[in-house]
Structure formats: C-alpha cells, structure tokens
C-alpha cells in the first residue's frame, strides 16, 4: 500500500498540494480526476520522488527509495521514453534496470498495438508514442502503475482497445492510478474515484459505495464540485441582458 500523510507542496507562494492524506492499496484501478493544475501531476511526482515535499509518503510502511522504487512505474503524456531508442532498445534497457520487467507482456502488447520494433521512438505517431509509453509502464513489473493523462491525442477506438487490454492483463496485485479528464470513458471500469481540486482531495469514493447510494460517478462529481446546472442559462441571461 502506498500511503500519503499530510503531503504539501508549494511552488513559490502557490500551494500546489495541500495536506493530502491518501491510501492506495494493491489491486485497485483508481481514477484521479481534477481540472488542469489541480495537483494531479504534482501528486504523482511527489510519490515518485521527483520533487521535494512536506509530509510523508510510504510504500508498505517504508519510505520510497532506490530499494523499492522499481515497484512503481510511471506513464506520462510528457513521455518518459528515450526518443532515439527503438522498442527493442527500450526492452534491453528496462530488463537491465528493472529485475521484474516482463518481456512477455512487453512484446505481447507491442504486437497487439502493431508497433514497429526497430524504429526509434521519435518516428512514432503521437498515438503510438502514447501506447508505447503505457506499454513500458505496464511491463516494468511494478505493483503500482501511475498514469498521467496517458491518452492525450489518441482516438476513441484506440482508447477503448487500450482499456480492454488493460483490464485483460492486470494481475490482482497490480494497482493503477489513472489521471484523466475522460471521466465518462473510464467510469465503467475504475473501482474508485479520487477528486482533487486546488491541491486538496475533495472526494474519494468507491464505485461500490456509489452503487449502494444509487448514484453514478458523474452525478457524484458534479455534486462534489457544486456544479450548478443553471449556471449556463444564468450566464446567458447576464450576457444578453435579458431579465430573468
């Protein structure tokens, strides 16, 4: 389990993450939702140790260091592959650095998405780059797979394919933390939703709880964000000068 306790992060005067308490157990598919700049990326970067932060983040009770960092993988829309390396080259690099790298899964997924093996990554299309980025994260042999907006630029069929493959290959011990704005697309298969707004966790709910309450994710999110359906008509009224 990854556990965040009172995690804070500021950039200058701006507080990007405020007092975040979070538990991410093994074997869950978790959606992380929030507007751009709400702190989704900052949270993931804190877990991975890319940035300094206040508070504590532990993995099974131990701080995240070189000893256990291989248990966490990361896919990002910024891409973290090596642009001049081929798919095969990446497999070699990952095999060398991550003892639990799954070649079977890697080559299986490469084949499924029909990605070229001997071409440097910079020559891939945006969609292919995203696919490859996620394939690496899934093949690393990690227990916790963090994905930050991994499908920006992929078409909908492509994403659907990906979701199905993801569900088909995940082992019961693997956890996925998926940050995305495609809430409706993923609402069918995530098991839990975490809502972040202005650096604070404003909602954390399992789909089972929502089912029991007889509501759905979109309603929950709208309620949490105090979304007002009359907002649009009110704005129009204000702009056109018509009295209500």
């Amino acid at each position: 389990m990854i556990e965040l306790k009172q995690v804070c992060k500021s950039y200058g005067h701006k507080r990007a993450v405020k007092n975040v308490d979070l538990k991410l157990p093994q074997g869950e598919i978790i959606g992380l939702f929030g507007e751009n700049g709400a702190g989704k990326t900052t949270l993931m970067k804190a877990i991975l140790g890319f940035i300094r932060y206040e508070g504590t983040i532990t993995l099974d009770g131990a701080p995240i260091t070189t000893k256990n960092i291989a248990r966490i993988s990361f896919a990002t829309s910024e891409h973290s592959f090596f642009p001049d390396l081929t798919a095969r080259g990446h497999a070699e690099f990952y095999r060398e650095h991550f003892p639990r790298f799954s070649e079977k899964r890697f080559y299986g997924l490469i084949e499924f998405f029909d990605l070229p093996m001997g071409k440097p990554l910079r020559g891939f299309s945006t969609g292919q780059k995203n696919q490859f980025e996620v394939i690496l994260a899934l093949s690393q042999g990690a227990d916790y797979i963090l994905m930050d907006e991994p499908f920006a630029g992929n078409d909908v069929f492509n994403r659907e394919d990906f979701y199905k493959v993801l569900l088909g290959i995940l082992e019961p011990h693997e956890t996925v933390l998926l940050s995305t704005h495609l809430i409706e697309e993923v609402s069918g298969f995530i098991g839990r939703a975490i809502l972040i707004r202005e650096g604070s966790i404003v909602g954390d709910v399992t789909m089972e709880e929502l089912e029991e309450q007889g509501t759905d994710l979109m309603t929950y999110i709208k309620n949490t964000y105090h979304y007002r359906p009359d907002r649009v008509s009110k704005a129009l009224q204000d702009m056109t000068g018509e009295e209500g």
Partner: peptide, 17 residues
C-alpha cells in the same frame, strides 16, 4: 475474471463480486 472484465469493459473486482 480478467477475460470477462476485458470483454465487458468493467472493473475486475466487479466481475469478482
């Protein structure tokens, strides 16, 4: 569990349940 989850596009834990 996994195959059905993938087939229907639903959470594996839902199938499990």
């Amino acid at each position: 569990r996994r195959v059905l989850s993938s087939l229907l596009g639903v959470n594996p834990n839902t199938v499990q349940k």
